[in-house]
Amino acid sequence: MNKRFFIGIAISLVFYGVVQALISGEILNDFYIDTLVMLGVNIILAVSLNLINGFTGQFSIGHAGFMSIGAYVSAIMTTNLGYSFPLGLLCGCLAAAVAGLIIGFPTLRLKGDYLAIATLGFGEIIRIVWLNNDYVGGAAGLNGIERVTNWSWIFFGVLVAVVVIQNIVKSTHGRAMISVRENEIAAEAMGINVTKYKVIAFVVGAFFAGMAGAFSAHYFYGIAPTSYNFMKSFEILVFVVLGGLGSTAGTIIGTILLTLLFTYLQDIPEWRMVIYSMILILTMIFRPKGLLGNVDVTKFFKKGGASKNGGTTTTP
């Protein structure tokens, strides 16, 4: 907790205040608020996946599954059972974290592509459970969820996610996670409890994915199983890799650019996905480490030496 940390918080609070003022003054119309909420949801998803994928090096493509748990559990709590949103949100996050724990443990034996396919499988199983359960509406999903999420919720959600994950990453735990990513055997030889850090990454990552799910469910009026298929997991993974694996700032910027690009292309639907995928391929070819891979943005705010802990490494 140094001075820089508080300056960062102060700057973001000012940003929050300005946007809130613009919203209250009806200068920003609903479409911009929708976009801000969607941005916030995507940022939470990407930053939390980055903890698993970018910092700990565990190749997970089941993030949409965790998101769906947060969305469904919170929606059941508020819409079906009538509890308040904060309680629903908390339960959603915790349920997702428990799922992260359950999925984290058995898959510890797996590495690389095999872990990826196993997490993809878990994500799909979760979706199929929702699909086959009529209590949560089956294919139609849950509709008529009250809109509770607003700019304040989403802003502080993003802030908490970023601060918590940044603090984990910058702590001893974070260095242990990065060492797991760089070389698992060496890390183990150095006395690092590899299992523990992998599970922590999965649990924390899932917790925030659940939070993103709960926010989006309580903003976009309804949820359905199709919103959480493996394509959604890919989408989140793309945010992370395009921005720069292992760089929180990069992830945030990548998410913002891609979300805005996707929105901007809405007017030419036929070419929307063609252009989107072209840009994806070109960025990967010309910036294989992501837009901000290996760049730690915080160094611009620092005097002198920068800490280099962003960036990707080649999987052995």
């Binding site: 119309n29 609903d30 479409f31 929708d34 976009t35 969607m38 999903g141 989006s216 903003y219 976009f220 009026y221 309804g222 949820i223 359905a224 919103s227 929105t263 809405q266």
Partner: peptide, 15 residues
């Protein structure tokens, strides 16, 4: 997508 549908409807109305 459902969330996109909410935004699209909002965009058509407000923009």
């Amino acid at each position: 997508k459902k969330d996109e549908s909410t935004r699209t409807a909002t965009k058509l109305i407000t923009e």
